[in-house]
Amino acid sequence: MLWKYLLGFYMLLVTAAAFLYAPPALGLGELSRIIFFHVPVAWVGCLAYLVSMLNSIAFLRKQKLEYDRRAAFNAEIGLVFTILATVTGAIFSRYTWGEYWSWEPRQTSIFVLLLIYGAYFVLRSAIEDEEKRARLASVYSILAFISVPFLVFIIPRIYSHLHPNPIINPGKQMEMDARMFRVFLASLAGFTGIYAWFHNLHSRYLKLKAKFEEAEKHA
């Protein structure tokens, strides 16, 4: 219970630091502060999909509905964060390159993630039987996941490259101011914490629901 409040306080500090402590990046100006929110949110969007897909694999192996429910709620969390990432990205795009949308590689990737999430939920809503829904959605989630690396490989070769370089280039120098980098890492940790909190809440909710259903059966 306590760490929920700690997390809230921590995020408050991170937000304040993002505006007050970190200096604006060269060239981008005040706008650069959006990366403290945009990148972590996009990261959680991807992380949630990964966790969802792993739960789908676990479902197919063990045939326990619990895993499918986990896969579904991770996808729900992921969808929300992916939408946030798309919106913050579009704002950034508007004020640096002049257009909300420019089919730039990373924008395209996040758009595909949105498409996958969308298709996943459309498929789920089309099937009534829980067992069947779990199986088909799991298979789809894995198939969609397989196509992602291909996309990551192909898109930068075709579309023009506008996006700021990855923050940490392996083998190269860090292109970020040390203070910025500290805030960035802190925010990344904070958003991952928020994801963990959501995850925990939903797990507890599912457990309680299962208990109630069990109790109702015996009543």
Binding site: A119, S147, F150, I154, I155
Partner: peptide, 13 residues
């Protein structure tokens, strides 16, 4: 709806 996300890398290429 289901095909587009999976086929996108193929179609783009």
């Amino acid at each position: 709806v289901l095909s587009l996300p999976v086929l996108l890398p193929l179609l783009v290429t």
